[in-house]
């Protein structure tokens, strides 16, 4: 009989719940030049080094080549891997699902945006399951519309 602490659902036995010795590495897999553009933006804003968030584009790549490239980056990572994709459908999402099919410290987040990526840079040392929930929440909260009523208000300049 297995002990309760060895049950897969028990947080104590789930590696994704453990503090990480190496911070997570991000892989951004997108259509076209989106991945390089977003990584450029992240680096410009945060000063992060290029090995923190690695861009991968599906341009010119068949399905096998794309999976191989994402897998190669994931396998070079010393610690957990967070794969970000542009959306939940398509060749990029499929490649991410393939690479994360085997158990391990890897998660996939679909539909990435810049607030999510910026938050990842500063919190990638969190346990993976905590990081996952945080990044999803941050991504969602980063989507909002301009408050037209406030934008149209006749507001005085500060100090006047």
């Amino acid at each position: 009989m297995s002990s309760p602490s060895s049950h897969p659902s028990d947080p104590a036995s789930n590696p994704a719940s453990h503090p990480v010795s190496d911070p997570a590495v991000g892989i951004l897999v997108t259509h076209g030049a989106m991945s390089q553009g977003m990584v450029d933006a992240v680096v410009k804003i945060t000063g992060a080094s290029e090995d923190v968030l690695v861009p991968v584009s599906n341009d010119g790549k068949g399905p096998d080549a794309l999976v191989a490239e994402v897998a190669a980056v994931a396998e070079r990572a010393a610690g957990p891997v967070v794969i970000f994709t542009d959306m939940g459908q398509g060749s990029c999402a499929l490649a991410a699902r393939f690479v994360c099919r085997d158990p391990g410290l890897r998660i996939v987040l679909f539909g990435t945006n810049l607030p999510m990526l910026l938050d990842f840079v500063f919190h990638r040392d969190l346990p993976l399951d905590e990081l996952e929930g945080r990044l999803v929440a941050r991504g969602r909260s980063g989507i909002c519309a301009l408050d037209r009523e406030v934008a149209g208000a006749n507001r005085p300049l500060p100090g006047r």
């Binding site: 259509h31 068949g62 399905p63 459908q89 398509g90 060749s91 499929l94």
Partner: peptide, 10 residues
């Protein structure tokens, strides 16, 4: 289409 069901198709 090598990528079968993907963004361009869907």
């Amino acid at each position: 289409d090598e990528r079968l069901i993907h963004g361009q198709v869907t």
